[in-house]
Protein backbone atom coordinates (compact mmCIF):
# COMPACT_ATOMS: atom_id res chain seq x y z
CA UNK A 1 0.00 0.00 0.00
CA UNK A 2 1.42 3.36 -0.95
CA UNK A 3 2.05 5.87 1.80
CA UNK A 4 -0.66 8.28 0.72
CA UNK A 5 -3.16 5.49 0.46
CA UNK A 6 -2.11 4.09 3.79
CA UNK A 7 -2.47 7.44 5.52
CA UNK A 8 -5.95 7.88 4.10
CA UNK A 9 -6.85 4.37 5.11
CA UNK A 10 -5.74 4.73 8.72
CA UNK A 11 -7.40 8.09 9.05
CA UNK A 12 -10.66 6.58 7.91
CA UNK A 13 -10.16 3.67 10.34
CA UNK A 14 -9.38 6.08 13.17
CA UNK A 15 -12.46 8.20 12.47
CA UNK A 16 -14.66 5.16 12.10
CA UNK A 17 -13.48 3.43 15.28
CA UNK A 18 -13.71 6.67 17.23
CA UNK A 19 -17.33 7.14 16.10
CA UNK A 20 -16.63 10.27 14.12
CA UNK A 21 -17.92 8.73 10.89
CA UNK A 22 -20.20 5.78 10.26
CA UNK A 23 -19.70 2.75 8.06
CA UNK A 24 -21.29 4.29 4.97
CA UNK A 25 -19.22 7.47 5.21
CA UNK A 26 -16.08 5.42 5.65
CA UNK A 27 -16.79 3.25 2.64
CA UNK A 28 -17.67 6.33 0.63
CA UNK A 29 -14.28 7.85 1.49
CA UNK A 30 -12.57 4.71 0.26
CA UNK A 31 -14.74 4.59 -2.84
CA UNK A 32 -13.10 3.47 -6.03
CA UNK A 33 -10.50 1.41 -4.23
CA UNK A 34 -11.73 -2.12 -3.74
CA UNK A 35 -8.51 -3.17 -2.05
CA UNK A 36 -8.96 -0.59 0.67
CA UNK A 37 -12.65 -1.29 0.99
CA UNK A 38 -11.92 -4.97 1.40
CA UNK A 39 -9.26 -4.26 4.04
CA UNK A 40 -11.66 -1.94 5.79
CA UNK A 41 -14.18 -4.74 6.30
CA UNK A 42 -11.92 -6.23 8.98
CA UNK A 43 -12.34 -3.07 10.94
CA UNK A 44 -16.09 -3.17 10.54
CA UNK A 45 -16.00 -6.66 12.01
CA UNK A 46 -13.71 -5.45 14.78
CA UNK A 47 -15.97 -2.57 15.70
CA UNK A 48 -18.99 -4.80 15.67
CA UNK A 49 -17.32 -7.31 17.95
CA UNK A 50 -16.10 -4.85 20.52
CA UNK A 51 -19.33 -2.87 20.49
CA UNK A 52 -21.10 -6.11 21.37
CA UNK A 53 -18.56 -6.63 24.09
CA UNK A 54 -19.14 -3.10 25.36
CA UNK A 55 -22.87 -3.58 25.58
CA UNK A 56 -22.65 -7.04 27.10
CA UNK A 57 -19.89 -6.57 29.68
CA UNK A 58 -22.12 -5.92 32.65
CA UNK A 59 -21.41 -6.63 36.28
CA UNK A 60 -23.97 -8.64 38.25
CA UNK A 61 -26.74 -6.36 39.54
CA UNK A 62 -25.84 -7.25 43.12
CA UNK A 63 -22.20 -6.15 42.86
CA UNK A 64 -22.54 -2.67 44.41
CA UNK A 65 -24.40 -4.12 47.42
CA UNK A 66 -21.79 -6.83 47.76
CA UNK A 67 -19.04 -4.22 47.77
CA UNK A 68 -20.90 -2.06 50.28
CA UNK A 69 -21.40 -5.02 52.62
CA UNK A 70 -17.66 -5.45 52.70
CA UNK A 71 -17.13 -1.74 53.16
CA UNK A 72 -19.52 -1.80 56.12
CA UNK A 73 -17.34 -4.49 57.69
CA UNK A 74 -14.24 -2.32 57.37
CA UNK A 75 -13.09 -0.28 60.33
CA UNK A 76 -14.02 3.38 60.07
CA UNK A 77 -10.97 5.44 59.40
CA UNK A 78 -12.00 8.94 60.27
CA UNK A 79 -9.68 11.66 59.23
CA UNK A 80 -9.84 14.60 61.52
CA UNK A 81 -7.15 16.76 60.15
CA UNK A 82 -6.76 19.06 63.17
CA UNK A 83 -6.71 16.15 65.61
CA UNK A 84 -4.26 14.29 63.43
CA UNK A 85 -2.02 17.30 63.33
CA UNK A 86 -2.32 17.69 67.06
CA UNK A 87 -1.32 14.09 67.61
CA UNK A 88 1.59 14.41 65.24
CA UNK A 89 2.62 17.69 66.79
CA UNK A 90 2.42 16.25 70.29
CA UNK A 91 4.39 13.18 69.28
CA UNK A 92 6.96 15.28 67.49
CA UNK A 93 7.35 17.62 70.46
CA UNK A 94 7.78 14.67 72.78
CA UNK A 95 10.39 13.11 70.54
CA UNK A 96 12.23 16.41 70.15
CA UNK A 97 12.11 17.04 73.91
CA UNK A 98 13.92 13.77 74.40
CA UNK A 99 16.15 13.85 71.37
CA UNK A 100 17.43 17.41 71.40
CA UNK A 101 18.89 17.36 74.90
CA UNK A 102 20.10 13.83 74.26
CA UNK A 103 21.73 14.89 71.02
CA UNK A 104 23.36 17.89 72.63
CA UNK A 105 24.54 15.74 75.44
CA UNK A 106 25.75 12.91 73.30
CA UNK A 107 27.32 15.05 70.64
CA UNK A 108 30.32 15.21 72.91
CA UNK A 109 31.52 11.97 71.46
CA UNK A 110 31.27 8.87 73.62
CA UNK A 111 30.51 10.65 76.81
CA UNK A 112 27.94 8.56 78.53
CA UNK A 113 25.01 10.03 80.34
CA UNK A 114 25.18 9.57 84.08
CA UNK A 115 22.04 7.55 84.50
CA UNK A 116 21.63 4.62 86.83
CA UNK A 117 21.27 1.71 84.42
CA UNK A 118 21.58 2.21 80.72
CA UNK A 119 23.33 4.98 78.89
CA UNK A 120 23.04 5.84 75.24
CA UNK A 121 26.38 6.01 73.57
CA UNK A 122 26.72 7.70 70.25
CA UNK A 123 29.35 6.23 68.00
CA UNK A 124 30.60 8.35 65.14
CA UNK A 125 32.76 7.48 62.18
CA UNK A 126 33.67 9.82 59.38
CA UNK A 127 33.93 7.68 56.30
CA UNK A 128 32.80 9.48 53.14
CA UNK A 129 31.96 7.19 50.23
CA UNK A 130 31.17 4.13 52.33
CA UNK A 131 28.15 2.14 51.22
CA UNK A 132 27.43 0.91 54.70
CA UNK A 133 28.95 1.07 58.13
CA UNK A 134 27.96 -0.93 61.15
CA UNK A 135 29.31 -1.34 64.59
CA UNK A 136 30.30 -4.67 66.11
CA UNK A 137 31.33 -5.37 69.65
CA UNK A 138 30.89 -7.33 72.83
CA UNK A 139 27.44 -5.80 73.16
CA UNK A 140 26.06 -7.31 69.95
CA UNK A 141 28.06 -10.54 69.68
CA UNK A 142 30.18 -9.00 66.94
CA UNK A 143 27.32 -9.32 64.54
CA UNK A 144 27.83 -6.88 61.63
CA UNK A 145 24.14 -6.72 60.78
CA UNK A 146 22.93 -6.08 64.33
CA UNK A 147 23.78 -2.39 64.65
CA UNK A 148 23.96 -0.56 61.34
CA UNK A 149 25.13 3.04 61.43
CA UNK A 150 23.38 5.75 59.50
CA UNK A 151 24.47 8.66 57.40
CA UNK A 152 21.16 10.37 56.91
CA UNK A 153 22.40 13.61 55.42
CA UNK A 154 25.02 11.92 53.23
CA UNK A 155 27.92 13.98 54.58
CA UNK A 156 30.04 10.91 55.22
CA UNK A 157 29.56 10.94 58.98
CA UNK A 158 28.05 7.68 60.11
CA UNK A 159 26.26 7.58 63.42
CA UNK A 160 24.75 4.96 65.69
CA UNK A 161 23.37 5.30 69.17
CA UNK A 162 23.70 2.17 71.29
CA UNK A 163 22.17 1.62 74.71
CA UNK A 164 24.85 0.19 76.99
CA UNK A 165 25.19 -0.77 80.62
CA UNK A 166 28.15 0.06 82.76
CA UNK A 167 31.24 -1.87 81.79
CA UNK A 168 34.12 -2.26 79.42
CA UNK A 169 33.47 -3.02 75.77
CA UNK A 170 35.68 -3.93 72.86
CA UNK A 171 34.33 -2.85 69.54
CA UNK A 172 35.13 -2.03 65.94
CA UNK A 173 33.48 -0.61 62.85
CA UNK A 174 32.65 -2.67 59.76
CA UNK A 175 32.80 -0.68 56.54
CA UNK A 176 30.99 -1.96 53.43
CA UNK A 177 30.34 -5.22 55.24
CA UNK A 178 33.96 -6.30 54.80
CA UNK A 179 36.55 -3.94 56.24
CA UNK A 180 36.96 -4.00 60.00
CA UNK A 181 38.57 -0.90 61.43
CA UNK A 182 39.08 0.51 64.94
CA UNK A 183 37.43 3.72 66.05
CA UNK A 184 39.86 6.59 65.38
CA UNK A 185 38.26 8.46 68.26
CA UNK A 186 38.53 5.66 70.81
CA UNK A 187 40.27 6.32 74.09
CA UNK A 188 42.00 2.96 74.16
CA UNK A 189 42.85 0.10 71.84
CA UNK A 190 43.49 -3.60 72.27
CA UNK A 191 44.80 -6.30 69.94
CA UNK A 192 42.23 -8.94 69.16
CA UNK A 193 44.73 -11.77 68.72
CA UNK A 194 43.88 -12.18 65.05
CA UNK A 195 46.04 -9.37 63.83
CA UNK A 196 43.41 -6.69 64.21
CA UNK A 197 43.01 -3.90 66.66
CA UNK A 198 39.79 -3.27 68.49
CA UNK A 199 38.73 -0.12 70.22
CA UNK A 200 37.92 -0.09 73.86
CA UNK A 201 35.13 1.78 75.57
CA UNK A 202 34.97 1.94 79.32
CA UNK A 203 31.71 3.07 80.80
CA UNK A 204 31.45 4.13 84.36
CA UNK A 205 28.86 6.40 85.88
CA UNK A 206 31.26 8.47 87.82
CA UNK A 207 32.24 11.90 86.85
CA UNK A 208 32.55 12.56 83.18
CA UNK A 209 36.06 12.30 81.98
CA UNK A 210 36.69 9.39 84.29
CA UNK A 211 38.13 7.54 81.36
Amino acid sequence: MKLKKRLLFYRVVEDFLSNRINEEDALALLKGDTELQEAFKQYIALKKSYSRFQSRARPSPGLPEKIMRQIQAQPVVVERAPLFLKVYAAALTAVLCILIPAAIFLSLHHQPKTSPDVVYVKFVLHRPGARSVSIVGDFNDWNPSATPMEDLDGDGTWVAVVPLKKGRYNYAFVVNNSLWIPDPLATDYVKDGFGNVNSVLKLSYEKQGAF
Partner: peptide, 19 residues
Amino acid sequence: QGDKEAFGVLVMRYHREIF
Protein backbone atom coordinates in the same frame (compact mmCIF):
# COMPACT_ATOMS: atom_id res chain seq x y z
CA GLN B 1 -15.25 12.25 57.56
CA GLY B 2 -16.42 8.70 58.25
CA ASP B 3 -19.56 8.50 56.13
CA LYS B 4 -19.44 4.97 54.70
CA GLU B 5 -22.76 5.38 52.92
CA ALA B 6 -21.28 8.19 50.87
CA PHE B 7 -18.81 5.69 49.48
CA GLY B 8 -21.80 3.83 48.04
CA VAL B 9 -22.45 6.81 45.77
CA LEU B 10 -18.97 6.40 44.31
CA VAL B 11 -19.44 2.65 43.94
CA MET B 12 -22.69 3.21 42.06
CA ARG B 13 -21.08 5.85 39.92
CA TYR B 14 -18.04 3.90 38.77
CA HIS B 15 -18.45 0.17 39.25
CA ARG B 16 -19.76 -0.38 35.73
CA GLU B 17 -16.92 1.23 33.85
CA ILE B 18 -14.29 -0.17 36.18
CA PHE B 19 -15.88 -3.55 35.60
